[in-house]
Design a binder for these strands. Sequence first.
DNA 1: GATGATTTGTACGTATGTATA
DNA 2: ATATACATACGTACAAATCAT
Lengths: 227, 227
Amino acid sequence: MTDPDGPADPLLERRSRTRTEDLRLQLADEIVRGDLAPGMALDEMRIAARFGVSRTPVREALRQLAASGLVEIRPHRGAVVARLSTEKLHELFVAMAELEAVCAGLAAVAMTPNERRALEEIHELLRDLVRAGDPQRYHELNESFHTAVYLGSHNGHLAEVTLATRVRLQPFRRAQFRTLGRLSRSYMEHDDIVRAILRADRDAASLAMRDHIGTVETAFGEYIDML
Amino acid sequence: MTDPDGPADPLLERRSRTRTEDLRLQLADEIVRGDLAPGMALDEMRIAARFGVSRTPVREALRQLAASGLVEIRPHRGAVVARLSTEKLHELFVAMAELEAVCAGLAAVAMTPNERRALEEIHELLRDLVRAGDPQRYHELNESFHTAVYLGSHNGHLAEVTLATRVRLQPFRRAQFRTLGRLSRSYMEHDDIVRAILRADRDAASLAMRDHIGTVETAFGEYIDML
DNA sequence: GATGATTTGTACGTATGTATA
DNA sequence: ATATACATACGTACAAATCAT
């Protein structure tokens, strides 16, 4: 008899499920999706009660989230969803631009033919979504586009660090930010990146990605000013 | 009456000392210094007994170290000092070269005059240590040199990520690796970096740093082969 | 500024999962 | 393959620190 809670695909490695792990993933998701807004207090007992567990796994999950930067913990003073000052926000955008630029540069020279084809395919699907005017799905597939570049660097550490930086910025993005004009421009910038990567032009890929993230921050900043 | 355990300098913020924090710093130090070698088992009870505390703060410290990559934890199977495969080791070196290159590039255009002077001063002290033939102190001040560049980027996130990468590689460096020939070459490469930073030449600084870390890995690889 | 309420930090016992015979 | 030994994962109680009054 098989484990009824096991994964559908038996090929996926089955790490023994721990409450801490479940909580970490669940809380990270709620923070990234915005259900738990920046600054919101994360009371250990309240969370424990909400998930029907003791404080211990809640504590461990919060510590791990703090290590990733999504949560802020001060001794004896509890945990809150991480809040970013304007300066820190800018700093993270600059860091993300540089990190993604490095990934794109390495990807240009390291990606396998299959990976290049896959990236091109995602890029074409994004074009269709611009034409269809579907910001929601564009946003989702856009994540895949960037993740494909991270993985294309063939450097797990850089990919991890870059993704972590992106995740930290997620809670500060809002749906309203995804306008159709932005989508079209985003797609055109992606085009520069993809072309450079496909012709294995490291420096061009790096520069195109840096510029791309730069305009993302600009658009983001314009939205922030509207608050 | 003042806290007898307080810091000498009252201006330094005094984070309430917690056993978890102490343990984390102590264990990280022992791992980085090599007292706890990669692959060594980190038994919660043994460590708790050694430090005279309960298992709880030990657990939390180990989790945090795992988050930083210095420790590896598998559910229900305990923790060990992180071991790196040859491939992973190379990957971390490539990542470090890229990260430090980014920091150097940003530092070239962001450092204040004071920071530039301080970097130059460290550089000159390193020159003296090469002449004096003091690998131990060169190694220590070399850390300061690189840290100064990280901080010079004026980007806390990048500095943090880059430093974390360097720390993860520390346990795999050995004293024997620091030969006099290496020192001299290291100093000359630093010279290229410093010159580029001082004349605010971003690309040159970036390239010089990337090359520098590249030779560090080469020298490191030669040592590894001797094992 | 002292006191009480509240929350976190730590200790320790039990349950559960992993590895070995 | 089953059982046994062992270390970890979790729960619970208490101590210590913070903040509110």
